[in-house]
Amino acid sequence: MNGGGASLEWEAPALVLSAAPFGEADALVHLFSPAQGVTHGLVKGGSGRRGSATWQPGNLVQAQWRARIPGQLGTVTGELAAPNAARALTSRLSLACLSSLCAVADGALPEAEPYPGLCQDSAQVLAMLGTHDEGIELSMLIRWEVILLRDLGFALDLSRCAVTGQTDRLCYVSPRTGRAVSEEGAGTWAPRLLPLPAFLLTSDAIGNVEDWVNGLRLTAHFLGRDVFGPIHRSLPAARIRLLDLVRAQQEV
């Protein structure tokens, strides 16, 4: 049966968001698939010698999920479709991006609610980690976080200045409203606003280290306040480590 999150059996490509050992060799996994959203399940042998490589966070698997009754923790089987985790091992920053994306999605998305567009975007970002310039990877990850905020109902409005209405020279974002502010509109309030990296205003721009730090700070503010704050959680540790890593590059 292929259907929504309430199905008792489904098969689909799915991203592994997390995997934790359970018992001697099994694993509790969180999967993200287009039609089912985030789903939890038990993989027999998932943390054993043979299974652990398949169920690494970030990997794309062809998964089969089954449960006997609604609300039961299902059992999962599957085959590796794309070894994204192994590819990201080529770079410390790529691995940090992968860990951050998986942790943020795992913590932010409600269980069994489909986000097909976001799932596709997540798969695209994970597939390119370890294969591109680190700047491209970071800019893509930050754009992904902006999309995540939008899909969860907390869209940033970067189209025009909230004060003057102008569409050029947008330099800041209001930490209260999430709306862009121009240099003229900011005035003496500029120190209280969040810097807006220019690459977020142009689809093919990449930015530099300062832009990536500002972009990660920008999305972290709204993720922390609007997504994780209401459920009484802090930003995932992997997300905090990513910002620390990029800040360290800025200081070199």
Rank of each mutant, 00 (worst) to 15 (best):
Q56R: 13
D121F: 13
H40R: 14
H40P: 00
T90V: 14
R50I: 05
S122Y: 11
E79K: 15
N84Y: 15
E79P: 01
H40K: 13
A63G: 02
E113N: 02
G41P: 03
R50E: 00
V76E: 07
E79H: 13
N84G: 05
A67N: 02
L73E: 03
P57I: 05
R66L: 09
R68E: 09
G78Q: 03
A88G: 01
A67H: 10
W65R: 10
G41I: 06
C102A: 06
S100T: 10
G107L: 03
S122M: 11
G78W: 13
T54S: 01
R49A: 00
S52E: 05
L118M: 12
E113P: 00
S91E: 04
V38Q: 05
P114Q: 04
W55P: 00
L95P: 05
L89N: 10
V76N: 04
A96G: 06
P70S: 05
Q64D: 01
S99E: 09
A81M: 14
A53S: 09
L93F: 09
T75R: 15
G51P: 02
V104D: 01
C97Y: 02
D121M: 10
A103C: 08
W65G: 00
G41L: 04
Y115A: 03
A105D: 05
G41W: 10
G58C: 02
A86V: 14
T77F: 08
L73A: 07
R66K: 15
V61K: 11
L93P: 03
G51Y: 07
S47R: 14
S99A: 13
W65C: 00
S91L: 06
G51H: 03
I69Q: 14
A53Y: 11
Q72H: 14
C97N: 08
T39K: 12
P116R: 12
A96T: 03
R50Q: 04
S99H: 14
E113A: 03
G46C: 01
W65V: 09
G45F: 06
Q64Y: 09
